[in-house]
Design a protein around this nucleic acid. Sequence first.
DNA 1: GATATTAATGACTCATGGGTCATTAAAAAG
DNA 2: CTTTTTAATGACCCATGAGTCATTAATATC
Lengths: 216, 216
Amino acid sequence: MIDDAAAGTASPKPRQRRREQRPGEIIAAGFAEFAANGFEGTRLEDVAARAGVVKGTIYRYFDSKEALFEAVVRSRLTSNLDAIGMAISSYPGSATALLEHMIGQLYELVLKSDAHVLMRILIAEGPRFPGITEFYHREVISKGTALIGAVVRLGVERGEFRDGPLARLPMVLFAPGLMAAIWQLTFARHQPIDLDAFKAAHVDLVLNGLKLNESA
Amino acid sequence: MIDDAAAGTASPKPRQRRREQRPGEIIAAGFAEFAANGFEGTRLEDVAARAGVVKGTIYRYFDSKEALFEAVVRSRLTSNLDAIGMAISSYPGSATALLEHMIGQLYELVLKSDAHVLMRILIAEGPRFPGITEFYHREVISKGTALIGAVVRLGVERGEFRDGPLARLPMVLFAPGLMAAIWQLTFARHQPIDLDAFKAAHVDLVLNGLKLNESA
DNA sequence: GATATTAATGACTCATGGGTCATTAAAAAG
DNA sequence: CTTTTTAATGACCCATGAGTCATTAATATC
């Protein structure tokens, strides 16, 4: 009793540790299965097997297949765009360099992490789970679009970028990144892409497409 | 009996007409259901109801759910890219005008027709039906990429376009079109896009991104 | 008009997989 | 060491939906 608190924090008992880790393990297993087979195509028994437990155990932590699925998706939707927005406002370099940096970040997030697998879930299960699409749009898409839009406006003000239709639809500037993600999900097996070369072409297109022609 | 042939061609008997039309009706119903619910999420009974028949009837024309699914996808994969390739080789205008025309065509195919719905099927069911992905890549993607690549090279030769990484990865030039398709499948409910404005931004980006700077 | 053919039906089987629950065993409390 | 608690199990239930088939009725044939 004397060292209750110390024991609780310093070295959690195996039972407690299990209790805390299980949900995460099940969610990780669910992510893999749902991403590969879709919601309907995924058997809870496979999720359990992958997590090293038995089907019934899942129901100690999640009410239903739907609840698990939503937990899986939410676990990956933690948006860190607000923090990025802060970093941008204090960026020292040119708008051109900033935009290139943002595109680089996009490829880091597409390359590493299985974030692009989430795209498949979003596209495939959107009709059945409209709430997920709405959440992703609100937290990631609209914030991301606003961010790029701000950078483009900055570049226009500084005389680096042309004004034009792209300033109104700045998400178009990230389209090649989306294409790379979709490609990885579909045709990579038949025709692998070099992500660095793809990024280079992306940057080349966007920076030259926005660049203000000095001759004008 | 005398006008057997005439009756056969001019006005087919209701029974024959049914026999000929049923598969198409079932495929159309299947396309709608599969596109909305995915392969696993689709109930054959719903497909039958939509087609105005009963589940058992489907099995007169298709061996299994898989067979119906593949028939559905194949029916939309009729590639007409070879014909387009022919038309391009005799195009009279500039490479710039040709590329703009091709992008316009892309939006016509994305806008009208439910071709973009096929994208959802392809992305969602690709892992379960790798043959479909492979077929689509071979018949549409690689031919389409070759086509754009040819136009870009033409533009470079004529001094209209810059040479650069985009000449090696010409599919990047169609990325905004892909984004428009995905957007329609996901976020259009929450934030509809004006496809004409989107196309304008697309053309603006691509033509300026490729344009050779006269000052150089 | 009688007979043969076959498209279509709908009631059926059966495997699958989501969800439940009494039981077990391992840890915590005393 | 004994008792209580609870994470985990696995056998079970049951709704669902793919696939079957004997029967029906509309058409074609004679």
